[in-house]
Design a protein around this nucleic acid. Structure first.
Lengths: 139, 139
DNA sequence: CTCTTTGTTGCGACTATTTGCAATAACGAG
DNA sequence: CTCGTTATTGCAAATAGTCGCAACAAAGAG
């Protein structure tokens, strides 16, 4: 589930056109590495063909984020993109090694309810990033 | 509490030098508007004196974020800075109007505990941003 | 398969942000 | 108050990210 084909199908259903550029960018995003910068994606796509402009990378990545397919996290200067799994979840971003842990979001239910009640704020639970320090980096 | 003087005192204690540029940048950050871009801060400082370089604005803002005095939020393209109040709190960023609500972070205690237990992740509760839609924008 | 419509791309220009380095100035010592 | 040390700034050049627009190509209709 959620491999390149599935994402493309989702996009197709939402009236987006499927182009080889988009396929390659999505492929790159899904390929192993889980914290890619726009430049990283660009570099990886370049190994396949040089016929993709950096502007297209940025535009496609932004589109994927808007469609809830990818997430965008600002590590103070560095911006990383990662594919989003199914259902709401939290990204735990380690301040030291920049590793991103995908955590279950069940704990957020109570928080959501309280924000809704106290502030009238409808939080977007599908795209949450928390910063901190992971087990490995607690030196 | 937490006016320009206090922040400067904190910086002084941490061995940072107090320069007129830093004073003005902090002043600008504290002045009313709660979602300033680096350019906004620059523009506001310019009204007082033109003797401040844009690079200094960026460097100072980054320093303030590192010191936990200001926060930095990426609104997908736009980056905004805001002063950080005392104690842990949440920033509720509206996806439509970009308004930032400062919410109390007491609800996060349970979440923190669970992340610690299940993932060994020490979340930094002082700098959290959640995206969503505020009351006013629920059209 | 061909045509038409309209979303996408590439390109070049432009704006935003970062960085290296020499000149400057804050601050503690005398 | 003056001096020396060393963080900070300004400047200019480099890099990152965005935008407008004409050319191009994906998808559906015939």
């Amino acid at each position: 589930m959620n491999d390149t084909e599935n994402i493309l199908e989702t996009l197709r259903q939402r009236q987006f056109r499927i182009t080889p550029q988009r396929e390659m960018i999505i492929d790159a995003l899904l390929s192993g590495e889980h914290h890619l910068s726009a430049e990283d994606v660009y570099a990886q796509v370049q190994t396949r063909t040089s016929a993709v402009n950096i502007a297209t990378i940025y535009r496609t990545l932004d589109m994927l984020v808007e469609q809830g397919i990818a997430s965008r996290t600002d590590l103070g200067g560095q911006v990383i993109y990662a594919p989003v799994g199914h259902g709401p979840h939290i990204h735990l971003v380690c301040r030291h090694c920049s590793f991103v842990i995908d955590a279950d979001a069940t704990v957020l239910a109570a928080l959501d309810e309280q924000l809704q009640r106290d502030y009238g704020f409808a939080a977007d639970l599908g795209h949450i990033s928390l910063f901190g320090v992971c087990t490995g980096c607690k030196e």
